[in-house]
């Protein structure tokens, strides 16, 4: 089975690297092109959040298995300022960086599982999973 990769995120070019790695792993695992695109797009948004809000962090991309289901998990981790109000951040249209503010709720729509942990001291970790159809 394909192995996991960690992409350090420090600048906007790393966003491109991270989403390309995600697409590579997705096609290696046999995801259909549409789903590979959804995964790559989700990674792009998560990696950009790191660049915009935390400056530095990493994206871990790995295959996951549950019973006979195969999927891909992406963990976006940073030690940035954290998200002060998570329920607000999960509302469509909310942003603190002058962006479109569709980031997190949009990402949630792209994937099957979405998990967000954030606090002021330890930064933010977003874990997403998408299962092969």
């Amino acid at each position: 089975m394909a192995s996991e990769t960690v992409v350090p995120i420090n600048a906007d070019v790393d966003v491109v690297v991270a989403r390309q790695r995600g697409r590579e792993l997705a096609s290696e695992l046999g995801f259909v092109p549409t789903d590979s695109t959804l995964i790559a797009t989700a990674i792009s948004e998560l990696a950009r959040n790191i660049v915009c809000y935390a400056k530095h962090g990493e994206i871990l991309i790995k295959p996951v298995q549950s019973g006979d289901r195969v999927g891909i998990a992406v963990v976006a981790r940073d030690k940035g300022p954290g998200i002060a109000n998570i329920s607000l951040a999960m509302q469509d249209g909310f942003t603190t960086s002058g962006g479109l503010g569709l980031g997190l709720p949009g990402v949630k729509r792209l994937v099957d599982e979405f998990h967000l942990v954030s606090n002021a001291n330890s930064g933010t970790t977003v874990t997403i999973k998408k299962w092969k159809r």
Binding site: T37, L102, R109
Partner: peptide, 13 residues
């Protein structure tokens, strides 16, 4: 591309 359009719509773009 069609799959890009699909992802964009999901994101609300």
């Amino acid at each position: 591309q069609p799959e890009v359009a699909f992802a964009m719509v999901q994101l609300g773009l």
